[in-house]
Structure formats: structure tokens, C-alpha cells
Amino acid sequence: MTVLFYLSASVAVLATLLFVVASNTVHALLNLIVSFVAIALILLLLGAPFAAALEIIIYAGAIMVLFVFVIMMLHMGPTSVDQERRRLGFRIWWGPAVLALILVAEVGFLIVTGGVTAESGPRPVGPKEVGLVLLGPYVLGVELASILLLPGILGAYYLGRRRREGP
């Protein structure tokens, strides 16, 4: 299992490095998603399966899809088709593909060999315990998070609407 940890850490660092040096926004986004998936695997190995699932669902799923939507909205025009044709070359996607294949191999190894044990701590902390603590001592934080999310929705709606004319 320790080997898997260091493999995932290497993949995360490599993908983030590729993200920083990428010149194209879409390529950077691909590498960033691979990096998040690698970090989710690290969280699984650290004995935090619920956080790993959240990392995949919310970070690699929802937030990155928002970025994809915005890139799609900004990259409009007749030149984008040519750009897409040029981007689909093997030279572009082999990096994220290889890194993602390493992660898939790790997940397959974990499935074949059985359950994941707590690598670094006394024991794994499952979703039930997290939920009990979240709605117990931290219930005020949950309420504050809901107060934060509502202005998030309203602000995104207000700022994102298309104004007619004028300033």
C-alpha cells in the first residue's frame, strides 16, 4: 500500500506541474482533473473514504465541469473547429492519459486485493463517524456554510446575467 501512496503522490505532483506549465486552458484543465483524482486516491489510502468520494464528486466533477462550461462559452467562433482538430493529436493527450491509466491500475489493484486499510493512522474514519461529528459539535459550521452558499447562488446569478445596454 505504501507503494500505491507514493505512486499516487508522484502522479499528483506531475499532473500539477503539467497544469502549471500548460499553455492551453483545456490541457491545463485535463491535467488538473487527473491531479484531483490522484489526490482522491491518496485520501482513500489515508483512511478517509468519504472525503475521497467528495473530492471526486465535487472537485473533479462539479467544479471542474463549471470551468469546462465557461471555457466552452468563451471559445466560440469559427476558428474553434480548426483548433479542435489540431488539439486532438496524440501529442496532446498522452500525458493525462498515461497518468490516468496509472491511477486506474491502482484502483484495480485495490479492488483485486481487497479492502483499503488505514495507512497512516490508528484506524480509518468512515462516513458514519464524519456525519455524527458534522451534525454534532460542528452544526453551527453547517449553518454558516448554508449562509455562505446562498449568497454564492445569488451572486453568480446576478453577475452572470446578460444586461441589455448601458454600463
Partner: peptide
């Protein structure tokens, strides 16, 4: 959190996640 076997680390992670989810759309 994993070092001490407590759930507090994951709680803080969820709060950071909420912050990111609220910040990104704006």
C-alpha cells in the same frame, strides 16, 4: 485528522469544499 484517527480533519475538508463551491461560480 488521519494521524489521530479523528473525523475533524474531514469536517474541515468539507468546509473548504463548500468554500470552493461557493467561490467558483461567483
Amino acid at each position: 485528522g488521519a494521524r489521530w484517527g479523528q473525523a475533524d480533519g474531514q469536517i474541515m475538508f468539507m468546509f473548504i469544499l463548500t468554500l470552493a463551491a461557493a467561490e467558483v461560480p461567483v
